[in-house]
Design a protein around this nucleic acid. Sequence first.
DNA 1: CACATTCGAGAGCACTGCTCTTGACGACGG
DNA 2: CCGTCGTCAAGAGCAGTGCTCTCGAATGTG
Lengths: 240, 240
Amino acid sequence: MCATIAGMPAAAIRARARAEMINEIKTIARRHLAAEGANLSLRAVAREMGMVSSAIYRYFPSRDELLTALIVDGYHALGDAAEAADTEVADRADLRGRWLAVCQAIRRWALSNPAEYALLFGSPVPGYAAPQETTAAAARTPAVLIGILADGLATGALARPDPGELPGPVRSDLATVRDRLFPGLPEALLARGATAWIHCFGAVSFELFGQLNGVIEAREEYFDHQTRQMADLIGLPDAG
Amino acid sequence: MCATIAGMPAAAIRARARAEMINEIKTIARRHLAAEGANLSLRAVAREMGMVSSAIYRYFPSRDELLTALIVDGYHALGDAAEAADTEVADRADLRGRWLAVCQAIRRWALSNPAEYALLFGSPVPGYAAPQETTAAAARTPAVLIGILADGLATGALARPDPGELPGPVRSDLATVRDRLFPGLPEALLARGATAWIHCFGAVSFELFGQLNGVIEAREEYFDHQTRQMADLIGLPDAG
DNA sequence: CACATTCGAGAGCACTGCTCTTGACGACGG
DNA sequence: CCGTCGTCAAGAGCAGTGCTCTCGAATGTG
């Protein structure tokens, strides 16, 4: 008789069921993504759920919307992994150790979720333009890395680099980013961090996309070595 | 009457027509690739040629074989661009200038051929494994970059870096590559060059795959700045 | 009881890669 | 000259895709 559960109005319980449906769709879609790459099939997802393909459209208006949801989830999962790796380093003054830990976490997450990583950082899906809502989630991971540099600057472990090394337009672009996310950080330091972050992305992609095949076998050691080289470039001091 | 052209046997003229067919298919496929990304449609190519889709299979046994042909062509086109950029630098002793020129050429080629670049360096096509024949073509571009370092070593402009900085397994992996392509080059120098090459790939991919959108507007200056940072890491001296 | 909303089912459209069969054409050997 | 053979394009067909539309069955609300 009562149209509610524990006093919830009917609308709310329906919304709950709907949310669970959406979650199940995303979970299955993620598994399919992992199994056979970016060409995600709505029909296959529907089949696995025992539904008819058209029913999926009750929950996601299009395949692109489902992809967007998976992308946002992916950015957050990577951001979580990066943040966890950073906070797990007990010695907060060990900037180099924290940097290395975060980069390793990024690589590990990518190796564990190759299809999702490819969705986030690989070739864009043709005809799909990432909506604005993804950028906030995307910024989390680089924010962890730059946060390490900001910490180093605050404690005096990192020197303020010479700003003269930056071309004008680049400096103003970076200043905009800095003002939005890391107030007070010198542009030149942000630039070095960004270069190292881009290298980290490149190294992970290079390995994951098969460019290292038949060339480098000691993948993890090689990645760590490169990361240390980039830590040198940033000027991160050795542990101690 | 005569069944030949300029004395060519019939088999040869048939082979010629066949080669032209193959070239036309590849040209159209490349244009389609550029227009709408990696999901290349054989039927659309056939339609544009005024043929029926099944006829394409006379020339390429599968879509994957066509992709492989395009990939190999792409690696060679990029390799050509890199080599041309290097040889165009008149002052052969200007290692930094040559490095910058090659990296810029790589970026320019990628921006001019985004779909082909994505095919070469982006997320691997699901269910498609790049055959061995692609690796030789793929090696050409990094070979140009490392060649600059080899030149610098030969002229004494570059110092032999301390080999102790390399972990053992990485060193032996790199030694294998060195022995195959750059005999005599110290592993540590090869390692620095590889890191810079991977960063170059990362920076181009980052820009091309949209990760810079809304963040950096001065794309070219930013790329050049990063490239100079990596040149510093390698130890390339300033021009002069 | 009547109404509106929500949802799944099914048919259908236009598209894909790929296979198989059929028929046309030209070059060769007997 | 006729038959054979290889090459090629065409067409039908299979199984799959994203997506739209309509319909019927619930379910909760007035």
